[in-house]
Amino acid sequence: MAIILDHINYIYDADTSMAHAALKDVSLQIPDGQFIGLIGHTGSGKSTLIQHMNGLVSPTSGAVYFDGKDINDPDFNKKDLRAKVGLVFQYPEHQLFEIDCFTDVCFGPKNLGLSKKEIELRAYEALKQVGLPDEYFYQSPFDLSGGQKRRVAIAGVIAMKPDVLILDEPTAGLDPKGRDEILGLIKNLHDTMGITVILVSHSMEDVADYVDRIIVMNKGEVAFDGEPKAVFSHYEELEAIGLAAPQVTYVMQELRKAGFPVDTEATTIMEAADEIMRIM
């Protein structure tokens, strides 16, 4: 079920005076089961990129393959694709519309044409997976807190049982506790369901603890693509494009400069702590 992006270009407002390229020659391979962080500054093209992956946006040139098939082929069934590549938009709680949370989560599976029993089963399962307390199931989604609303919205996509789950800035506007909860929840989904997860963010700090691959976008191009350790070793270049490596990287680099023989590859606080303990 791998996704392959082959030399994608995308131009906004083509053939007007406002034309500008949002994506320039982007080629990527998304194999099964990876947990990927897609990082970039505002306007770097990350949101446009993920919309290519489930066919909401078609590239100006280049091709997107899902499971070996060109998704922009006229015969390709995009509805099936969208069930397999689940996309959670930024501020997904703004798309809630039903009278209660449970019915709202049913919307996705219902569009897949499943039986009533299967729909309700999936909705229930999804709401459980996102950890929404039972007493909220039959409440209006508009009465919930921001964090809970977001859980319901994410459940709405999970209920379609996608093979690939893409989340656009799922922690935007949440407090630190809510952020950790949502990220922990996504990590848990990845581990228990074995699905591919692409986490879009502008903060390295957010994703460093969770992902096994980081793709950095800058001005519509892929700037770096690799394991977190490898990407963070370019911390100076990252700063030049307006991003920053996690603070741990800076601490380790400073320690190294000050003459301590630490390994600068530690990316999480736990790793760094172990490393410092080791040399002491």
Binding site: L56, F89, Q95, F107, N111, V157, M160
Partner: peptide, 8 residues
């Protein structure tokens, strides 16, 4: 787009 992503 968000609803289309949910199969609408």
């Amino acid at each position: 787009k968000a609803q289309m992503a949910r199969g609408a």
